[in-house]
């Protein structure tokens, strides 16, 4: 998939765990895992916004397009 998810790197940088992020964002760990592994088919703007708020970052920091 040409779009990669950089959430693992961001979590490491912020010293946060997936469980903590899932709690803040209000989604299940299983769903966050689907997102982190790149298996998700779509992301809601509301989820992306919540992740950006929690991680204090821009959507471009989480999603990256590469050919």
């Amino acid at each position: 998939m040409p779009i990669t998810i950089n959430l693992d790197i961001l979590l490491q940088e912020k010293g946060m765990t997936g469980k903590e992020l899932a709690e803040i964002v209000g989604i299940t760990e299983a769903n966050l895992s689907i997102f982190r592994s790149g298996k998700a088919k779509a992301v809601r703007f509301s989820t992306l916004e919540a992740i950006c708020v929690a991680m204090d970052c821009q959507p471009g920091d989480i999603l990256q397009f590469s050919e």
Partner: peptide
């Protein structure tokens, strides 16, 4: 449904 299940 699969698409909906895989929408985060």
């Amino acid at each position: 449904q699969e698409e909906n299940d895989l929408t985060i």
